[in-house]
Design a binder for these strands. Sequence first.
DNA 1: GTCATTTGGTCCTAATTTGCAACCGAAATA
DNA 2: TATTTCGGTTGCAAATTAGGACCAAATGAC
Lengths: 163, 163
Amino acid sequence: MTKRHAAICPIAGFLNIFGDAWSWLVVRESFYGATRFSEYQRNTGIAKNVLSDRLKKLVDAGILSKHDVGERGSRYAYRLTEKGESLGTVLVAMVQWSNDQLFEPGEEPVQLVERDSGEPLLPLTPVDRQGRTLRWRDVIAVPGPGAPEMERKPRSSRTDEPS
Amino acid sequence: MTKRHAAICPIAGFLNIFGDAWSWLVVRESFYGATRFSEYQRNTGIAKNVLSDRLKKLVDAGILSKHDVGERGSRYAYRLTEKGESLGTVLVAMVQWSNDQLFEPGEEPVQLVERDSGEPLLPLTPVDRQGRTLRWRDVIAVPGPGAPEMERKPRSSRTDEPS
DNA sequence: GTCATTTGGTCCTAATTTGCAACCGAAATA
DNA sequence: TATTTCGGTTGCAAATTAGGACCAAATGAC
């Protein structure tokens, strides 16, 4: 994928890496333990040429790393980097949203739990520096230190042209 | 977008709605306060026919609702539904990841803060039912009550053919 | 040593999706 | 009555995707 979105916005930056039908499914498979080309292909059904392209791009983006494993033939393993592992938050947020909004209670195909106890996770919740739980409606986005000179009005808009 | 991913996985379900270059940017604009066709178009640079298509699909998916606003001419306003508002968690997770991994410290273009105090949010953190903070590496996905009969081995794989 | 098999791709073509520009109808406004 | 604005639709060229054929390297079987 060519860079489509101006990188002046964290969401645009995120979508430049993951804003297509397949890249995030590859990330999911990596979290579920897939490492091999054929494994990604079987589990996602993605076309080989597209998978090849996506793996290259995820490696370029520093999400996955590619390792030569000396088994018979030319074999490689893809693994999540630290940068890739740190996507766990986003993955969990997506799974919780889908479980809540896309499936009936009791019909969730996947559940998130603590490894040892099997305890389910509570919904992710915003917390401030004092440790106080916030309501989502009280969380807002404001221009950060690296914001372009023309600042965004709270809850208003500004341009984000594709390149 | 036709349904590409089998809906047996929350991530696949999520990507069936948001797995393209533009839909999530429309969601972002909605969170930032955009309501009008022309506003989405200006702020994202998306082509009109594609925007028209994406808005229809987001309305169909129950993420946005379309309202006839009786201003001059035929004018409509799109607004996030409750289902749409509940995507805030995912949006925040994405923004936090991007700020951490895509920008240098001090270069973040957007910051998440508590509305009244201006306090920055802490990173989203998993918590169990006892209120204990968990480490991400201890959070795992297990088959849920609606899992297909063949169960997924922990951190292993299973098929997810596109339709 | 030779043959077959597996993995991890590349290449080609057809179908689909996108970007872009032109056009259009309804309602207000001049 | 003519003009403007909004929210689209339509048509076309360009880019991207899906699907299949093909292929090289490395091993194991014979």
